[in-house]
């Protein structure tokens, strides 16, 4: 069963995937993982496998939809694209994230001022 520790990562990962699909369009799993790593300036080194459970969850929520297609190497792979509900979800999660980040940022400056 999923340990609570992973939830934060899973949550941010979901936002990253949605955002990626929103900007780039339809991508397969490997491309999504690579893209996230590149955008983070290779600061994030994903365990690339973790992306698949996250994709499944997003698919179950109806935020992304899969479609079978051919990869660059000619293999059968699933391409994921964002749905309308997914775009709406980005709005919500982005807002949540910005609020949370803002609060954390305040704490960080607070602590710094004290030091």
């Amino acid at each position: 069963m999923a340990a609570p520790k992973n939830d934060l990562v899973a949550g941010t990962l979901a936002l990253m995937i949605l955002k990626t699909l929103d900007t780039v369009g339809s991508l397969h799993g490997y491309a999504i993982a690579r893209r996230i790593e590149q955008i983070s300036g290779n600061q994030i080194s994903l365990n690339q496998g973790t992306i698949y459970p996250a994709l499944l969850r997003l698919e179950q929520e109806g935020w992304i939809s899969p479609k079978w297609g051919k990869s660059e190497t000619g293999r059968r792979v699933k391409f994921y694209s964002i749905t309308r509900a997914g775009k709406k979800q980005i709005q919500t999660e982005q807002g949540d994230w910005e609020r949370a980040a803002g609060i954390v940022a305040k704490f960080v400056t607070l602590v710094r001022a004290k030091a």
Partner: peptide, 20 residues
Amino acid sequence: RRFGGVTQTQEAFRDTHGFP
């Protein structure tokens, strides 16, 4: 190596998937 554990992925996938 970069993928992480294939088995773990499958397990996590299964957990997300149904009701253990």
